Amino acid sequence: MPEIFADLSTPLVADACVRHGVPLRVAPPGIGAVAPGHRVAGRVLPVRHYGSVDVFLEAFGGAEPGDVLVIDNGGRSDEACVGDLAVLEAETAGVAALVVWGLHRDTPELVEIGLPVFSYGAFPPGPVRLDEREPEALSTARFGTHLVSTDDLVFGDEDGVLFVAADRADEVLATAHRIRDTEREQARRIRAGETLRRQTTFDDYLARRAVDPSYTFRQHLRRTGGAIEE
């Protein structure tokens, strides 16, 4: 799974989702890798946290190699829900990474372990609560306004994290590769002295918009084969 995302980025995948009408399910802003440069790509292994690590241990029993543990901790900022022992155990279960809607702790140890962990930051205290467990504890996880399950893939890099339905992933990733190639060629031409305005025949766009105010730049890009937006 990481190989198919190796030369892509979350912005490219997001643009491809828009192009195909696939719902944009993006983690709320602010999420990042504990160790800079880490990336994530894999099937979602969902789990909801209620204050005890036991739910993680139970989730690991159903893990498949390469899964990404997606932890729903409600976006809480008053506790860290994962630390070094949970991450080490995830590694032994074949989990490829962890993505947390919440906070982590034991930062130096997590960096040393090397398993990618994405969260909203570090916080020393662990949970002191123990909430009632929901029936969906191991079947779905909330992440911001989104609900994810094993039917979804998760991708993460320096720009953030997003989720894509597994049954739409092939077309989305194929389009993301095409957008990447187009943008690379556009960047090469800019460096060679051909402005983006010239590449996109921007003057033509302005002239046509003057006649037809409903004509959008996005429509123009589709007609001319550009890939700046979407």
Results as ranks from 00 to 15, higher is better:
49 H>C: 13
49 H>Q: 09
50 Y>E: 07
51 G>P: 13
51 G>T: 08
51 G>S: 10
51 G>H: 11
61 G>E: 15
62 G>T: 14
63 A>F: 10
63 A>Q: 08
64 E>K: 12
65 P>T: 10
67 D>E: 11
70 V>N: 05
71 I>W: 05
72 D>A: 09
74 G>M: 11
75 G>I: 06
75 G>E: 13
75 G>M: 09
77 S>C: 10
82 V>P: 00
86 A>K: 01
89 E>L: 14
90 A>E: 04
91 E>F: 03
92 T>L: 13
93 A>C: 09
95 V>F: 04
98 L>M: 13
98 L>K: 02
101 W>L: 09
101 W>A: 10
102 G>P: 07
102 G>M: 04
103 L>V: 07
104 H>F: 00
105 R>A: 08
107 T>V: 13
109 E>V: 00
112 E>D: 12
112 E>V: 04
115 L>C: 06
115 L>A: 10
116 P>W: 01
117 V>Y: 02
118 F>N: 06
120 Y>F: 12
120 Y>Q: 02
121 G>L: 10
122 A>E: 15
124 P>Y: 01
125 P>E: 12
125 P>M: 06
129 R>K: 13
132 E>M: 08
132 E>G: 14
132 E>A: 15
138 L>S: 09
140 T>C: 05
140 T>S: 10
141 A>G: 09
145 T>S: 14
145 T>R: 15
149 S>H: 03
149 S>I: 03
150 T>R: 15
153 L>G: 04
153 L>T: 04
153 L>S: 07
154 V>F: 02
154 V>I: 05
154 V>N: 01
155 F>P: 03
156 G>Y: 01
156 G>P: 05
157 D>V: 07
161 V>S: 09
161 V>L: 03
